[in-house]
């Protein structure tokens, strides 16, 4: 079986224009994402998580190393990567959900237009003919229903929606072209804890129903544990630990992973040890 993504010794170095200091965002990273696997990429901000995701989406080219999509190299040197992408219908097969739906949705477009936009591409995947206007409307209604939005949400604008609803729109847009692979960059970290549960439920259901391959980036190991069966831990652009989620969650080997796990805020189990955090002054009664 061919892997969906094969990341082979990839480095990504950013050279700021007026600075001599190069930023090594990814340092010799290798990773294989198999079909229907659900990968979580965790690490602090600046660890290279988002850079890795952008490379998988073909939005950037690596400085060195190679990334293959289903066995074929994604970014052959000297070739326009966007062309290569569209030739193989990759644009519609690989879809992205971003962290902040406030900035990833165009404020001047209605929800319906946002969700239908990926269906209007000129070069479509082989087999899927370009959709007519009524077909696009039908598909839009279908995916909006799938993410739990009512049909009349299509006429609304993003600013009329709550944060959770906006993230549902972003997910609907990603699902509209019927992708096989979903890349998600911190899809719930801009949301309220109470809304987070709804979106996690939605993602869990959709990934299972559609048999999606998922690559999810998050700083929160709790979120990754819930959605992903495999984890790669990134620190300073290097993968320091990979493995099945349960194993890494239960027995992290690297001190850095242990630190990430310990930082996830948790509610005290039943009754918190009240002596530990005594008020500096007596409470009013």
């Amino acid at each position: 079986m061919t892997a969906v993504f094969t990341v082979d010794h990839v480095s990504q170095v950013f050279q700021p224009r007026r600075s001599a200091l190069a930023v090594v965002a990814l340092d010799d990273v290798s990773l294989t994402v198999g079909k229907a696997e659900r990968w979580g990429i965790v690490g602090e901000s600046g660890s290279g998580k988002t850079t890795l995701l952008r490379l998988l989406a073909g939005l950037e080219r690596p400085t060195s190393g190679a990334i293959a999509f289903e066995g074929a190299e994604l970014t052959p040197a000297g070739r326009d990567s966007q062309r290569g992408f569209q030739d193989r219908g990759l644009r519609s097969r690989v879809q992205l959900v971003f962290q902040d739906p406030r900035s990833s949705l165009d404020p001047r477009m209605t929800v319906g237009a946002i969700v239908a936009e990926p269906l209007r591409g000129r070069r479509r995947r082989a087999g899927a003919s370009s959709l007519s206007r009524p077909d696009r409307a039908a598909r839009t209604a279908e995916v909006l229903a799938a993410v739990g939005l009512s049909a009349d949400a299509a006429r609304r604008y993003p600013h009329e929606l709550s944060g959770g609803q906006r993230q549902r729109v972003a997910i609907a847009r990603a699902l509209a072209p019927n992708p096989d692979i979903l890349l998600a960059d911190e899809p719930v970290s801009a949301l309220d804890v109470s809304v987070r549960a709804q979106i996690l439920n939605l993602l869990t259901d959709l990934v299972a129903q559609m048999g999606l391959t998922l690559v999810l980036v998050s700083h929160d190991l709790g979120v990754v544990r819930h959605l992903c069966d495999r984890v790669a831990v990134l620190q300073h652009g290097r993968i320091v630990e990979t493995g099945p989620t349960e194993q890494i969650y239960a027995r992290p080997r690297q001190p850095y992973t242990q630190e990430l796990l310990a930082a996830v805020p948790r509610l005290p189990a039943v009754l918190p040890p009240s002596d530990e955090r005594k008020p500096p002054r007596p409470l009013q009664k």
């Binding site: 109470s194 987070r196 549960a197 996690l200 439920n201 869990t204 819930h226 959605l227 948790r266 509610l267």
Partner: peptide
């Protein structure tokens, strides 16, 4: 709110309780 905050106690992939 309390149920939603206890993400670490839910079985992975299970349906999370919502508010």
């Amino acid at each position: 709110l309390i149920a939603a905050a206890r993400l670490d106690e839910a079985a992975p992939g299970s349906r999370l309780p919502t508010v």
